[in-house]
Structures are given as C-alpha cells and as structure tokens.
C-alpha cells in the first residue's frame, strides 16, 4: 500500500462546496459557512421552542434552558457589570449561544467550526470592541470617557505614562479574546485529528484500540471546553463592558 502523508492542518482547512465570487471578493460556500448557518438555525430553533410554550411549572426542557439563561443573567452580567448591565443581556446572550453552538456543531464529523478559524472569533471580538467603546463614548462623552481611563489622584507626569499603557491594553483586548477562543478550539481539533491519524501515521491498525478511546475521551473533553470557552468569552466581554460603563472601578 502506498504510504499516504497525513497533514493535520490540511484536514482542518475549509473545503469549498460551492465556489462563489462577488465583485472580486471570494465568498465561496465552504463547510465552515454551512456549519455556522446550521449552528445559528439550531440555536434559534432550540431557543424558540423553549420560549414558545412557557408554563408556570416548567417541564424538563424549559427548566434546562431557564437554568442557562439565569446563569448568564446572574453569574455573568449582574456579578460582572451590575444591575445597570441588564440592557446588555440580549447582546451577551447572543454571543454566548452563538459560540456555544458553533463549538458543539464543530465537533460533528465533516463540519468545520468557524470559531476554530481566525476570522470567526476576530469578527466577534471586533464587534465587542466597537460596541464597548461606542457605548462608553456615547454615555460619558468623548473627553470624559478617555479621562476615565486614568485613575484619579495621579501626578501629571505619571498620567502621561498611564494613558498610553491603557490605550495599548484596550487595543490588545480584542486580540487576546480572539486568540484565546480560536487557539483553544483549534488545539482540541488538532489533538483529535492526531489521535485519529495514528493508524495512518504508523501504517498499522494495531494502534486503533489505543487511539480510539483517547479520541472518545478528547471528544468528551471538547464538549466541556466548548461550554467553558463560550462562558469565558462572554465573561470577559462582560468584564470589559463593566469597565467601560463604570470607569472608576
């Protein structure tokens, strides 16, 4: 048998299903795009079904969704922003469910998760970045918002050092959000692919009893990490929003 080369990153690259070009911009339908739309449809369907027949005494399905929603409301928004952060609930809830269902559907074979590529998390992080700063400037005014970055009571020459540092950290925040989500999901998928590829790499089937349980264990871990990463992205967004709403602390 001819020895095949096994390239993990090639396996993880999106596969074009329907080539499409509009005005020189490549918007081909890849399996990444299909996964993203499937995630949106599944998330919307589950939330709509859970919300349609709300009963005073909830059934098990409605109960489970209420636990997740209350977790986002109490443990993420109220503990990170405070009561005045509740208008941000639809935004943060959307981000949470979008990332959660993208991560989970990315584990289905032949799909390709958008959050495991650089572009998906970067888009979300840029949306968070813009909404934080636009909202902060609209609430406090341009001068007062940027003045709020400097802790009060500092000598004037230290203020000139602190302000560029704060500006750099504000610009670095979306990138750290991006890399955290993208690299976590990519690392998990690379590990699953490497374990799956042992049989091809060593050119024997005797490693399958060893590698297959590892794949199953890593899959279970990935389901856990999907939820944790969605939580982490939402919590950090809420933290940055809280810092923009109440800049004094």
């Amino acid at each position: 048998m001819e020895k095949e080369s096994f390239d993990v990153l090639h396996e993880l690259a999106p596969k074009v299903l329907y080539p499409l070009k509009v005005g020189g911009i490549d918007i081909s339908i890849t399996n990444t795009v299909v996964t993203m739309f499937a995630a949106v449809i599944v998330a919307a369907a589950i939330l709509i079904i859970a919300a349609r027949k709300t009963k005073l005494v909830p059934g098990p399905f409605q109960n489970a969704m209420e636990i997740i929603i209350e977790f986002i409301r109490n443990d993420i928004i109220i503990s990170m922003i405070g009561k005045d952060g509740l208008p941000w609930f639809p935004f943060l809830g959307t981000i949470f469910f979008f990332i959660l269902f993208n991560n989970l559907l990315g584990l289905v074979p032949f799909s390709n998760t958008p959050t495991g590529r650089l572009s998906g998390p970067l888009t979300l992080a840029v949306i968070v970045f813009l909404s934080i700063h636009v909202y902060g400037i609209r609430k406090h005014g341009l001068i007062k918002y940027f003045a709020g970055w400097i802790p009060p009571g500092l000598p004037i020459f230290i203020q000139f050092i602190v302000f560029p540092l704060e500006a750099i950290s504000a610009i670095a925040k979306p990138f750290s959000l991006t890399v955290r989500l993208f690299a976590n999901i990519l690392a998990g998928h690379v590990i699953i692919f490497v374990f799956l590829g042992f049989a091809i790499m060593f050119d024997t089937l005797y490693v399958v009893p060893l590698s297959l349980p590892m794949v199953i264990i890593m899959m279970c871990l990935e389901v856990l990490f999907s939820a944790i990463q969605a939580y982490v992205f939402t919590v950090l967004s809420a933290m940055y929003i809280g810092a923009a709403i109440n800049p004094e602390h």
Binding site: S176, V179, R180, A183, N184, L186, A187, V232, L236
Partner: peptide
C-alpha cells in the same frame, strides 16, 4: 483563562 492565554500564544 489568563494563564492559558499565554500558552495559547505559544501554540
């Protein structure tokens, strides 16, 4: 999360 971000940059 903040600690593992450093390792992820290395990744």
């Amino acid at each position: 999360v903040f600690i593992e971000a450093i390792a992820l940059y290395t990744l």
